[in-house]
Computed example of a mutant assay.
Amino acid sequence: MRRISAPLRREPGTPGTANTARKWTVQNMTEFRILGSLELNAAGAVHPLRGPKIGKVLALLLVHANQVVDIDTLIEELWDAEPPVTAVSTVRTHVYHLRRRLEQVLGPHEAESMLLTRPPGYLLRLREDQLDADRFARLHREGQTLLGEGRAQDAMDRLDQALGLWRGQVLADVAKGRRLSGQAARLTELRTRCLELRIDAAMRLGRHRELVPDLRDLVAAHPLNEWFHARLIVALNKAGRRGEALRAFHDLRDVLGEELGLEPSDELRRLQRDILIGAEAVPVSAPAGPPRRAARP
């Protein structure tokens, strides 16, 4: 998964005791990562888990951290509609081995306080920022708030930190059932929203020329996302590349017509008209919703 390009980045925040303390704490605490492959990081080292089922159990407990996950939910995720007759005892065995692995890595005391048996299931107790997905969500919220306050540079810094936590697809090495697939889809959608906010912040700072390569990548990865197309068209036009901006509009119209039998949205058609007459081409300020869908004729 490609991250946003480096030229637009600078070190986030300013030096200070609070920032330094937070950075030190995050680097030295036990950390679980799901924004990519499933990882347990402790004392600066990645510790592998043994067995796909154990990894799946851990993944489900992580996406529901600090909540009780009942045994029926674990059984559904592990075996879908065809659990074995020994499903309950097998789940307990997987949790036992997960607890032993946590003890090996973290020590008995921390493992015991982290993975708890709570009828009718189990609870994984995590502290703030101990899961990369939670840290991503927090940074995303902070960036959104800063952008709403008109602090575009601070917002972009915070959103860059959030996007920098992604190492690939959510739980890339875990065979996901229905529950985990739903959580992965939710986080992926939140990442798209974070990208949209980050682009909005960069445009407010007038960095249209620098955005063009990233927007081309995003359009290629999300060919039906009209919001990304609109920003590419505006960025090209403001970079003095009017012909390429019009070509980008025609490319979108071709894709929508071939894939969905649709015409570009009113916003896109307005952008095309503004470029043709030499008017100021400005997209709507707020990121749009999901791309429109239509049944094939």
Rank of each mutant, 00 (worst) to 15 (best):
Leu74Arg: 09
Ala201Leu: 07
Gly289Pro: 07
Pro83Gly: 00
Trp166Asn: 05
Arg242Leu: 07
Leu276Gln: 13
Val57Cys: 15
Gly16Arg: 10
Thr188Arg: 07
Tyr96His: 03
Leu215Glu: 03
Ile34Cys: 03
Thr192Trp: 09
Arg191Thr: 09
Ala42Phe: 11
Asn19Arg: 13
Leu78Phe: 05
Glu196Asp: 15
Phe32Glu: 10
Val88Gly: 07
Leu260Asn: 10
Ile277Tyr: 10
Arg100Ser: 02
Leu61Tyr: 05
Leu98Pro: 02
Gly182Tyr: 00
Val282Phe: 03
Thr14Ile: 07
Leu60His: 00
Ala235Lys: 00
Leu60Cys: 03
Ala288Ser: 15
His140Tyr: 11
Asn28Arg: 08
Thr188His: 06
Asp173Gly: 03
Arg33Ile: 05
Leu163Asp: 03
Thr20Trp: 10
Thr192Arg: 14
His94Ser: 01
Trp166Asp: 00
Ala201Arg: 09
Leu224Met: 13
Ala137Lys: 10
Leu163Val: 00
Leu252Trp: 07
Pro283Tyr: 13
Phe32Met: 02
Gly16Met: 06
Gln130Lys: 10
Met1Asn: 10
Leu62Gly: 03
Leu35Val: 02
Arg193Cys: 00
Glu244Cys: 00
Leu123His: 11
Pro119Met: 04
Gly121Phe: 12
Ile54Asp: 05
Glu77Asn: 02
Ala45Met: 12
Gly261Asp: 07
Glu196Tyr: 04
Gln153Pro: 00
Met29His: 10
Glu244Lys: 08
Thr145Phe: 05
Thr17Asn: 13
Ala155Glu: 02
Val88Cys: 03
Glu76Cys: 06
Leu60Asp: 04
Thr188Lys: 03
Pro223Tyr: 13
Leu165Asn: 00
Arg269His: 11
Arg253Thr: 12
Leu147Ser: 01
Pro264Asp: 11
Glu31Cys: 02
Leu35Ala: 02
Val63Tyr: 11
Ala152Glu: 12
Leu40Asp: 01
Val219Asn: 09
Asp132Val: 13
Gly16Asn: 08
Arg292Phe: 08
Leu8His: 04
Thr73Lys: 05
Leu159Met: 04
Pro264Cys: 08
Leu236Met: 12
Leu187Lys: 07
Leu256Asn: 06
Thr25Cys: 10
Leu163Gly: 04
Leu271Cys: 09
His250Cys: 00
Arg204Trp: 03
Pro291Met: 14
Arg186Ser: 06
Arg33Phe: 01
Gly168Cys: 02
Cys194Met: 12
Ala133Cys: 11
Gln183Ser: 12
Ile54Trp: 05
Leu74Cys: 11
Arg151Glu: 09
Glu82Trp: 01
Leu146Gly: 05
Arg10Pro: 01
His208Asp: 14
Arg179Glu: 13
Asp132Tyr: 12
Pro290Tyr: 03
His47Gln: 02
Arg125Cys: 09
Val88Leu: 13
Ala45Thr: 02
Glu189His: 11
Ser113Thr: 06
Glu82Tyr: 08
Ala111Pro: 06
Ser37Asp: 15
Thr86Val: 09
Gly51Cys: 01
Leu126Asn: 09
Gly143Ile: 15
Leu124Gln: 00
Leu211Gln: 04
Leu115Gln: 03
Ala248Cys: 06
Asp157Ser: 12
Leu61Gln: 08
Thr192His: 08
Leu195Arg: 15
Gly55Lys: 15
Val105His: 05
Asp129Ile: 00
Asp274Leu: 14
Lys53Gly: 12
Thr30Ile: 10
Pro52Leu: 15
His94Ile: 01
Glu39Gly: 05
Gln27Asn: 10
Pro52Arg: 14
Glu112Ser: 04
